Simulated scan of single mutants.
Amino acid sequence: MKRFLLGLGLAFFAACDDESSFVRPGDEDSSSSVIPGSSGDLSSSSVTPKSSVSETSVSSSSVRSSSSAEPVLSSAEGGEDLSSSSVRSSSSVASSSSVRSSSSAPVEDLSSSSSAKSSSSVKSSSSVASSSSAKSSSSVTPQSSSSAKSSSSVSSSSEYVPFDHTVTLGEMRDQYKKFTDERNDRSYYYITIRGKNKADEADSVTVMAENLNIGTMITYVKDQADDTTIERYCYDRDTTNCDRYGALYQWAEMMQLPSRCNTESCADLIQPNHQGICPDGWRLLTQDDFYIVLHADGNTHGIEGVRSSYGFNGYNSTGYSLVGAGVVADRKCQGIVEYAYWYYPDEYEEDSDSRAYLSATSRSGTGANLYRDLKTNGLSVRCVKLEE
């Protein structure tokens, strides 16, 4: 009988252990990982985001929370500050021609944090059609609206309550408007930010105050290579993180170009006002757009005025509400709460096959520098409303 029980136990252990595609808590390598080609090292954080609160309890404090993290993304480390006029410009007028904006700005590679542990394997279920003109529409998995209960997310409780995004917004509550993406009924707050452009002229941009979240969740050990549908990474394979911070996308996926564009140049396919995975009537955020955000009227705090005061150590005086969504790099999720990374719709000219332009900031950073790095990393996406 003892031999029988021992044999049964060994068989059960072998069966439970055969889950190579599912990463359990503690399975990932805890050693420091740096995005290939980078020169820095962004340490990971164990900071836990605050719980969501009701819409009526939006914080109005303009005093940022303290942080013990050291600044890691400053101009001294090789990145170029976006306040510089040498940052590449792009068109602000809709056009159908395949013209790229240009830049001669020398920039450095982006670094990443040590790997964060995975906590769940959550799959989304329902499907809607994508509006992209570059990829054919197919089974795009929706994420629930912030005002309705989610049916596709799994949490430790029996019923997941969608994150209240009003807690990340700034003090200018009366200036926010709300838009619903018809592809998956996900609602986004957006705001018009007025400031100065690179020519030091008065200008404005109407931009989502939240990161984009649409697509079928896949594991981040795989490329977003299905050109028939929008795919997304959720930090730790948890759709609640996509709801809270937005999804993470490889460059070609963000652009809604063939996945081969992550490893070869697709300069001829990049359009001015490139829509990418943004909804109809919206386009991808450009370097020029973010310059206006950073130089918004009344923003005396630089990048700290762009970061949310909720969990990202900022003043949010611009209303942009940047959050620490982290990054997927080296097939690992890294830096949630501590770092924000976002692509621009531009390839890096000197290595257009594999690298694109992006910006990044940390929770304690004093700059939002311009970098170049691999298109296969997973970064956040923001959308800008087309001018009517």
Results as ranks from 00 to 15, higher is better:
residue 2 K to T: 14
residue 6 L to S: 15
residue 10 L to F: 14
residue 11 A to N: 10
residue 12 F to I: 15
residue 16 C to F: 14
residue 18 D to G: 12
residue 20 S to V: 13
residue 28 E to S: 13
residue 28 E to W: 06
residue 30 S to R: 12
residue 32 S to E: 08
residue 33 S to L: 13
residue 38 S to D: 10
residue 38 S to P: 04
residue 39 S to P: 05
residue 40 G to F: 10
residue 41 D to V: 11
residue 50 K to D: 09
residue 54 S to F: 13
residue 55 E to N: 11
residue 56 T to M: 13
residue 60 S to M: 12
residue 69 A to N: 08
residue 69 A to M: 10
residue 73 L to Y: 03
residue 75 S to D: 07
residue 75 S to H: 06
residue 77 E to R: 13
residue 77 E to S: 10
residue 79 G to L: 06
residue 79 G to C: 10
residue 82 L to P: 01
residue 83 S to L: 09
residue 84 S to V: 09
residue 87 V to K: 05
residue 93 V to Y: 10
residue 96 S to V: 11
residue 102 S to D: 11
residue 103 S to L: 06
residue 105 A to N: 09
residue 120 S to D: 14
residue 124 S to T: 15
residue 125 S to A: 13
residue 128 V to T: 15
residue 129 A to D: 12
residue 131 S to D: 12
residue 132 S to A: 13
residue 133 S to I: 08
residue 134 A to C: 05
residue 139 S to D: 06
residue 145 S to A: 15
residue 146 S to H: 07
residue 147 S to M: 09
residue 150 S to G: 07
residue 151 S to V: 08
residue 154 V to Q: 06
residue 155 S to N: 10
residue 155 S to E: 10
residue 160 Y to E: 11
residue 166 T to C: 05
residue 171 E to T: 14
residue 174 D to T: 12
residue 175 Q to A: 14
residue 177 K to P: 04
residue 179 F to Q: 03
residue 179 F to W: 06
residue 180 T to R: 12
residue 186 R to M: 06
residue 189 Y to D: 09
residue 189 Y to T: 04
residue 192 T to Y: 06
residue 200 D to W: 08
residue 201 E to C: 10
residue 202 A to I: 14
residue 206 T to H: 04
residue 210 E to L: 03
residue 213 N to S: 11
residue 214 I to R: 02
residue 220 Y to Q: 06
residue 225 A to E: 05
residue 227 D to H: 05
residue 228 T to D: 12
residue 236 D to A: 15
residue 241 N to P: 02
residue 243 D to Q: 02
residue 253 E to T: 15
residue 255 M to F: 04
residue 260 R to C: 03
residue 264 E to P: 00
residue 269 L to C: 03
residue 270 I to T: 01
residue 271 Q to G: 01
residue 275 Q to K: 14
residue 278 C to W: 05
residue 278 C to P: 06
residue 279 P to L: 09
residue 279 P to I: 04
residue 280 D to R: 14
residue 280 D to S: 13
residue 281 G to W: 09
residue 281 G to R: 13
residue 282 W to N: 05
residue 283 R to M: 09
residue 289 D to S: 08
residue 291 Y to F: 13
residue 293 V to S: 02
residue 302 G to Q: 00
residue 308 S to V: 05
residue 311 G to A: 06
residue 312 F to M: 01
residue 316 N to P: 00
residue 318 T to F: 00
residue 320 Y to Q: 01
residue 324 G to E: 00
residue 324 G to M: 01
residue 326 G to V: 01
residue 331 R to G: 09
residue 334 Q to E: 14
residue 336 I to F: 05
residue 343 Y to L: 09
residue 351 D to F: 07
residue 355 R to E: 02
residue 356 A to I: 00
residue 359 S to M: 03
residue 360 A to Q: 04
residue 360 A to L: 05
residue 361 T to R: 02
residue 366 T to A: 10
residue 366 T to W: 08
residue 368 A to D: 08
residue 371 Y to A: 07
residue 378 G to Y: 07
residue 379 L to M: 15
residue 379 L to H: 12
residue 383 C to F: 05
